[in-house]
Amino acid sequence: MRPLRILFRSISSAFKSVFRNLSLSIASLTCIIITLMIVSIAIIFSSNVNYSTKEIEKDLEMVVFVKSETTEEKVKEIESNLQVLPNVEQISYVDKETAKEDMKKENDTYKKIIEGWEEGENPLDSYFIVKVKNIEDMSETAATIKNLEGVDTVNYVEDLVEKMVSTFQIIRNVLIVTVVALIFVTAFLISNTIKITIYSRRNEIDIMRLVGTSNTVIKLPFIFEGLFLGAFGSILPILVTIYSYVFLYDKLGGVLFHPLLPMMQPYNFVFKVGLILLAIGSVVGMFGSYKAVRKYLKI
């Protein structure tokens, strides 16, 4: 019972302290709010980039044309060569007759042209459809395939997707660096707030030490104060995240500027982000106050 009582007293004392040093608490809170807002943007952005990239990857394929005079055995060889490539997810073979039929079905113009061909004439080449695991390495894989014996050309939507993905990744990395830096700044600010609380209560702390209060009992309220500042500071960013993401999702029609880039479904996702923000706020708050307590409570 006694540890529980000490815990409750620490919590209530921490709570009072947040309000007693209101201006300082507000300064820390503002910093936490700004940091968590940016953290939230970073998380939402990078999750969506990841999601879009995955979605694109699902659809993205290369078409590998086989030279027209290639024998069936040679085709088998190419197929097994393709299968062993590390970035190849799946391959399927379309021979020239199937290609002809497929093309006929595609539209009327093609159909007319093909019907104009003589019986048995087929200038089309057989091809493989290759799905890759990772689009970032797509051009490399394409170059390797192109060098295989019997391969004529390799076609894929080269530049656009690749550039878009790499740009997103740069933005995401910049965001991550910014977030880490901001988290440290926030921890430092919270640590300062707690330092001033400790300073303003140093007489009390001195007396407590002299009358035999254990170090844990002296330290706990400060740790809780940091935790509260962090947790309170995450409330506004969480609400803003939930409402603005849902709003944006509806406004943009569920895609990020282009139908190729779908956005993540808002529900569950926004709540997960909210939980992450709460966790980051609390941990950063506790970490900041823990640092201050270690440094300035010489006990």
């Binding site: 007293r9 009358v211 035999g212 002296i218």
Partner: peptide, 30 residues
């Protein structure tokens, strides 16, 4: 050990009762 100081070291914002009680309070007494 009980310690008595020349400068009393009382907490100005606490009453007489609270100044004495906070010792036991910080030990976790009911």
């Amino acid at each position: 050990i009980g310690i008595v100081f020349q400068d009393y070291k009382l907490l100005p914002k606490l009453t007489v009762y609270e100044n004495v009680a906070f010792v036991l309070d910080s030990y976790g007494y009911k």
